[in-house]
Amino acid sequence: MDTLLSLRVFAAVAEHKSFTAVADRFKLSSAMTTKHVQHVEARIGVRLLNRNNRNVSLTEAGARYLATVRPLLEGLTEAEAQLSESTLAARGTLKVSMPVWMANPSFGRIMAAYHAENPEVVLDFDLSSQKVNLVEEGIDLALRASPALDDGLIARKLAHVDFPLVAAPRFLDRFGRPATFDDLSGAPFLLYSPMATGGRIRFREYADLPDIHYKLVLQSGNETLIQIGAREGMGFAFLPYWLAADDLANGLLETVLPGQVWPKVPISAIYPDRSYLPAKVRSFLDFLAGPNGLGQEKLRE
């Protein structure tokens, strides 16, 4: 039996959760589709799929095996296309891990523009601030905003995002509009949890910015919740400009110390070390780095 075909059949069944759909796709009988999956299971001596009359799902071992095999199959397909001098269209499910705050109108427009150019790619976004194991969790790439990344990761810097200090106009009417850093001493702040330490904000990467001593009123690992609290007049907050842009334009939020240059954090795409990036991954990376992606002027303050 063709082991490579068996691997492709297994990966397709795992993705579509259907033997029947995969049989039609590969022009196989249902019985032969089942035999291909059984061939893979027999080779490695582990049950990879749970199946009954209604459902197909990966076992724990199957999920780990798929995470390892899928990029190899995609790379092989890409290599074959390159050798035959053919063009491989971006298609399939693209799984991306990215921060919660990237669920905003600006990124939504980028997402729609990418889809218009690549209609055969299904976008699957996991919004989380937690670190993920790309291989074990089947993630194609992760977008992370951080001044520094862990060693050993393959990363491509795509853009920088401003984190201005903002507050609601009604809060500023009551508190006063700060003219200097000293005016922020002891002020109420809503902070991203990793920043809420020791009662002061330290700009480690920016030696020219003094520490800010604050009164904590809200902390969260979800920047969208901080945005909502700031909009409701609870205090000052540092927000990614892409998240705050519409609120600033509509007057729901106001920039504090507008002449001040606040931190800019690089956004990087992180992905496993592969000899061949699948077309869906490469096309998405190139789009994000291009003129209509993350670096476009209208996303900047």
Rank of each mutant, 00 (worst) to 15 (best):
S30E: 15
K35H: 14
K35M: 11
K35L: 14
V37D: 11
V40C: 02
E41I: 09
E41A: 07
A42M: 11
I44C: 09
V46P: 00
R47V: 13
N50R: 10
N50G: 06
N55D: 14
L58S: 02
T59L: 04
T59F: 05
E60I: 05
E60P: 02
A61P: 04
A63N: 03
Y65S: 02
T68S: 01
V69T: 10
P71F: 05
L73M: 07
E74C: 02
E74P: 02
G75Y: 03
A79G: 01
E80P: 01
A81V: 08
S84Y: 08
E85L: 14
E85K: 10
S86P: 02
L88N: 01
A89N: 10
A90Y: 03
R91P: 02
R91S: 15
G92L: 07
T93F: 01
K95F: 00
V96W: 03
V100P: 01
M102I: 10
A103K: 13
N104M: 07
S106E: 14
S106R: 08
F107E: 03
F107D: 01
F107P: 01
G108V: 11
G108P: 09
A112H: 12
Y114Q: 04
Y114C: 00
H115C: 03
H115K: 14
A116P: 09
E117P: 04
N118E: 11
N118L: 00
P119D: 05
E120Q: 15
E120D: 15
V121S: 01
D126V: 13
S128M: 07
S128P: 09
S129N: 15
S129K: 01
K131F: 12
N133A: 12
L134K: 02
L134S: 00
V135Q: 08
E136L: 11
I139Y: 03
I139R: 01
I139E: 01
L141F: 13
A142Y: 00
